[in-house]
């Protein structure tokens, strides 16, 4: 083995994201070429850059490949039932309003079985940061058609090609009322890091969609190569259009991938409205809930 392959004993440096990871769980279960690890990397770097207090953070994830993120980050994290990451996160946020709650889950979990929760959390503008890793397929269960699978691609449940129209997630959540909507791919690591940092600053429902390769199922069945080929495809086909109308950013199988920050607006969030309503209706009888102390 060449010398350079061995860990450098004279170099005391450690990976800057190491403090945010449960190193004893590594290597992860994700396939070679999968982009979920890259999104976790960007997320950890956003935590470093934003200097956010880790004690005030909670990460909630659902089921699926991306749902495994909760087990790999050294934060207060919660691996919930399928599709119910947003309801659990809503409960956390309502019980302890000072908590920064992050929902980290996949497209199948958030937009299919959890689709109802996604639109209603956006409608109520609950202060959650949702990171949706979109690999365009149900990956952990064997490559079935997901609501986000582009038309004309091949999956294990549509071997002759998908004929259903796909969800355009940024359009969906903008229409439902999200205050921050962005989309990046795993190729855009720096932009994604910055975007996650911006979402931490927003009060309200923030949604970041990250297009990620699935070399084992989506890329293989559609003869699109491996994870590296997918990254080259993203590099070639993606076009940054900040502020683009979300109705025009739908994904197709081989067409342009519009990325960027689409929506950044202000709306009162759920708890602000709730307090205002109670203060108005109850007047002096309304008492702000006591601060919860976990000991």
């Amino acid at each position: 083995m060449p010398d350079s392959l061995i860990n450098d004993p004279v170099n005391p440096a450690v990976n800057p994201v190491e403090p945010f990871l449960r190193s004893d769980r590594m290597p992860s279960i994700w396939c070679p070429g999968c982009g979920i690890g890259t999104t976790v990397n960007s997320f950890a770097r956003a935590l470093i850059d934003s200097k956010i207090d880790l004690q005030s953070l909670a990460l909630v994830s659902g089921i699926g490949c991306t749902g495994r993120v909760a087990g790999y980050v050294k934060l207060d994290s919660f691996h919930t039932t399928h599709g119910r990451a947003i309801p659990f996160a809503t409960g956390l946020k309502l019980a302890n309003p000072k908590l920064n709650v992050i929902v980290y889950s996949g497209d199948g979990d958030l937009s299919a079985i959890g689709g109802n929760h996604l639109i209603h959390a956006a409608r109520r503008n609950i202060d959650l940061k949702v990171i949706c890793v979109n690999n365009l397929i149900y990956a952990m269960t064997g490559g079935q058609t997901a609501p986000t699978t582009p038309e004309h691609s091949t999956t294990s449940t549509n071997p002759y090609g998908v004929f259903e129209p796909a969800f355009n997630l940024p359009h969906l959540v903008e229409a439902a009322g999200a205050v921050y909507v962005a989309r990046w791919t795993t190729f855009h690591v720096r932009q994604l890091t910055r975007s996650i940092g911006e979402a931490f600053q927003k009060k309200g429902f923030s949604f970041i969609e990250v297009i990620s390769p699935c070399p084992t199922l989506y890329q293989r069945r559609n003869k699109m190569g491996d994870g590296l080929d997918a990254m080259k495809f993203y590099k070639e086909k993606s076009k940054v259009r900040n502020g683009a109308p979300t109705s025009e950013v739908g994904l197709t199988m081989t067409g342009e991938i519009v990325v960027g920050k689409f929506v950044d607006r202000e709306r009162p969030d759920y708890q602000t409205l709730m307090r205002a309503q109670y203060a108005e209706s109850l007047g002096e009888r309304f008492v702000e809930q006591a601060e919860m102390v976990c000991s």
Binding site: P16, P27, N41, S42
Partner: peptide, 15 residues
């Protein structure tokens, strides 16, 4: 450290 940012397995970084 772009290699470190892209690595999905946290296996490489540059200082």
């Amino acid at each position: 450290d772009l290699c470190g940012m892209y690595c999905p397995d946290f296996a490489i970084f540059a200082t």
